[in-house]
Amino acid sequence: MSQRQEVAVSTAQNAESLDLSPAMGIVEEMSPVTSGDIIPLLQRIQDAYGYLPPEAVLSVCEETGLPASKVFGVATFYSQFGMEPKGKHTVRCCKGTACHVRGGNRVLDTVEKTLGIRDGETTKDMRFTQETVACLGACALAPVMVMDNTYYGKMTPRRTELLLKEILKEES
């Protein structure tokens, strides 16, 4: 069996377990979907699933007639999109120059140490995903960290640890 066939089979198997109705609902709402809509389309699918399940993206391609090569090309170009399931919470640390100067690395180290994961990884219990970003645009009060969609300025290792532990405690 060629590699391509293997991928197709595994996708078909996964598709059985994945609920495609959210993706199809989005396609219907955005219809007619043209190639100019690929980015907003993927953004909405990612919002719905928390990530871009490849099988959902493939189904969307079939439904809309958009070439899979084009859609996957877009999905893999932009750092916002991910094809792996993400944790319940996403912690994003800024690696920009302004944050670096103010000790952004120490905040990042604290996150890695507290959660035991590195850039792009998700904890085994699927509670946290950690990502780094090039700039969050709140540079005057660096270092900056974003937990889900909440911004935290003037972060310190101590405050980072407290914040993470508070969430861990609240949910356990």
Binding site: C94, G96, T97, C99, A134, C135, G137, A138, C139, A140
Partner: peptide, 10 residues
């Protein structure tokens, strides 16, 4: 506005 250290547009 992607340059680190800039935020005037925002």
């Amino acid at each position: 506005e992607g340059d680190s250290g800039t935020f005037s547009d925002r």
